[in-house]
Design a protein around this nucleic acid. Structure first.
Lengths: 118, 118
DNA sequence: CTGATAGATTGATGACTGTCAATATGGCAA
DNA sequence: TTGCCATATTGACAGTCATCAATCTATCAG
């Protein structure tokens, strides 16, 4: 394995994604990385991040109050809420004609844990 | 604004992306969400997550030791290390013919902080 | 200098994603 | 029941992304 000036090649080391050890301490399996990547990808969009922060800040928000602040069409909002909900980051409750969204704090906690202590 | 059975519409409330308040406490601006989304998107891919976890687990890894475990071609590995480096999550140091990668713990810390305390 | 090797870059390609218009669904009001 | 309204779903389209083969660059060994 390569040290500063070696000649040989360096030696090689080695359920829901969120049930895995910290990223920085344990090498992720393919399955674990798939699940964790799904959740992180859900957060990897500026519109969804702002959507989530609005929901979090207000505790509970109905979809009709997201179109304005986010400046997106109704189907687009619905698309993003769906992705966040699929990732387990928010949940929606239907009350009458409206759907109320709120965050799932445990999910964010689990995500933070999965990102490791470092 | 809609309470359980109202008829009117609910009222609307109100250096790097990682320098923003916790997601769950402050509504993100468009600029903040862009930067934060970039970092999260970098992590939103299973190959990059495993790459990062391998680097983190070993402390320092040369690119040539990533192709095997990840099962991807050399250009693909280079592509992923570049994205992670652009996101500030890893840094590469060239020593001789090899490039050695290691994680940037502060960046992960900042990310955890940006995800909020909840 | 020459040949070999690690890694980056380029180009092409198929897959996925964000977006919106149009439409469907299901509750509420009159 | 009839019509309206909040969301969800569908379909289409443009832009982005992951991937690899081919190529380029730079370093080391002889």
């Amino acid at each position: 394995m390569p040290h500063a000036r070696s000649t040989t090649k360096p030696a090689s080391g080695a359920g829901e994604a969120l049930c895995c050890g910290p990223l920085t301490e344990v090498s992720l399996s393919e399955v674990e990385s798939e699940g964790l990547a799904t959740v992180l990808a859900a957060l990897g969009d500026p519109v969804r991040l702002r959507l989530l922060s609005i929901v979090a800040a207000q505790g509970e928000v109905c979809s009709c109050n997201l179109e304005g602040p986010l400046g997106k069409s109704q189907p687009t909002i619905s698309h993003h809420t769906r992705l966040l909900a699929d990732a387990g980051l928010i949940v929606g409750e239907k009350r009458g004609r409206w759907t109320w969204w709120r965050v799932v704090p445990e999910r964010l906690l689990a995500l933070r844990a999965a990102l490791g202590g470092a």
